[in-house]
Design a protein around this nucleic acid. Structure first.
Lengths: 259, 259
DNA sequence: AAATGTTTTCCATAATGTGGAAAGGGCGAC
DNA sequence: GTCGCCCTTTCCACATTATGGAAAACATTT
């Protein structure tokens, strides 16, 4: 009964369920999904439970209805980013890593948090390990600040109102005044510095990448141990980062906004 | 060795691979993924192949690198839509279905095509079956036209330039003039009519749903067999559709743009 | 041309997924 | 309030199906 050779039945079935959950049809209880997929109810239940434990499916016990989970959304987003941003970014990140000998990152803002979407790891033994794929409060990260600084003041204000400040280390920004002073500095300098504001012992220099529509859609950064990436080194590193960010902007046909 | 009871091992592993592919790390060849996931190479290969056949993974034979596939993107999108749009829409669509006795739909525009994201099926024996989840050229669907009509003329022009017109039936729009005449009519009337332009035998009446930022982010429609949903009925149906679209707009905190 | 590393195919083994059936819940009808 | 229906969840015996080692094909480097 193996019509398809070399593929994993249970995985194939789980994917079918994911697609059924994504379909507009509103028959989405266990028994509906079982019927629609042609699987046994118990099998369907086991597969859905598996998807749920991993956050790929979401179950509302109230109505009994199953929907696609947030994890699937995160994974899915990586597809759209990939073609338009990550692919052109990779060689540039590698260059940057080799020039600086530190870890080079590409990040975007999603759901008001900074997310790293591509990374080229430093080859040094001691290297900065920004949790890859991890989500960081925008104002605690170099990449986040680089992007936010391109926003109008009013939007930044709203952001702070909405999520407040969450100082993570003794160096983190603590007041609205701090933030605006910092934003101003970023605008003047053309790059953002995370000076042990996210994790003690790590510094990070970031610059924005611009879209065709002159929106800052991403940021390039270099992160390194504070011990090696000292304040003295920041200007030289910043020059490289700004340069590579501009190169990526060009590669994707973007254009910096005129401030 | 069953530490997790009641979950499907192979599916769990496949999900791990999906997440690894979505992670920023650029070690994404078969052997890298095997190492990172801790699975045997042959197992990893089989799982990836399974994901690939279904479009959830993408393999570039050139570089050997694996990335997340487009199917994962489509599935993932349904998550973000769900919370903000589909959930509030469901009861409204059901109402609309019961009022009109025809199939009620909610659609959005994605990648310049109209996609149905929720649906409440008519209970009649003969009912319109707009392929649910199917993608339709924007200008061949009521929902698409209802949304596009809210765009500035220049944007509509670009759209036509980019994808051309693809008449699907003898009633479809065939020239740029047709389109603009139609768009004008929609703006005046406040609803869009698909008069057998997508499939002969089906009529469809649609009205836009507005976001907080006064952008038309979706459309509500009723689709029925032309034999039952005659031209005479259109005005009455349109009133219901416009009404329900406004109700949904209100439910999501949206506001219609002032024309 | 040899050596190293990576992807793909094959196969014996038993671990793992499967679906029927029974137990457990929830909801509406009477 | 109780019964009865339908839907969800758990259980279990069975063999189908997934598994990983090894070998074969393919690429890349020295």
């Amino acid at each position: 009964m193996a019509q398809d050779e070399g593929i994993v039945q249970s995985v194939d079935r789980a994917l079918t369920l994911l697609e059924l959950m994504a379909s507009p049809d509103d028959a989405r209880r266990l028994s509906d999904l079982a019927r629609r997929s042609g699987l046994a109810v118990s099998t369907t239940h086991r597969l859905l439970t598996t998807l749920e434990r991993r956050g790929f499916a979401l179950h509302d016990p109230q109505s009994g209805s199953w929907t696609v989970g947030q994890r699937a959304n995160l994974v899915g987003d990586s597809f759209s980013l990939h073609g338009s941003l990550v692919v052109p970014a990779r060689p540039i990140l590698r260059d940057l890593r080799d020039l600086t000998r530190e870890t080079a990152n590409l990040g975007v803002i999603e759901a008001e948090e900074a997310v790293t979407v591509a990374q080229s790891e430093s080859r040094e033994i001691m290297r900065a390990i920004a949790p890859p794929g991890g989500r960081v409060p925008v104002l605690n990260s170099g990449m986040g600040k680089a992007i936010v600084a391109t926003w109008p003041d009013a939007a930044i204000d709203t952001l702070i109102e909405r999520q407040g400040l969450r100082p993570l280390t003794s160096h983190s920004l603590r007041s609205k005044d701090d933030v605006f002073a910092e934003i101003h500095r970023i605008r003047v300098q053309g790059f953002a510095l995370d000076d042990e504001e996210y994790v003690i012992g790590m510094r990070c220099v970031a610059a924005p990448v611009w879209s065709e529509m002159s929106e800052a859609i991403a940021a390039v950064s270099v992160s390194g141990l504070a011990a090696r990436l000292t304040r003295d080194h920041v200007p030289a590193i910043a020059k490289q980062v700004v340069d590579k960010a501009a190169q990526l902007t060009k590669a994707i046909g973007g254009q910096a906004a005129t401030l």
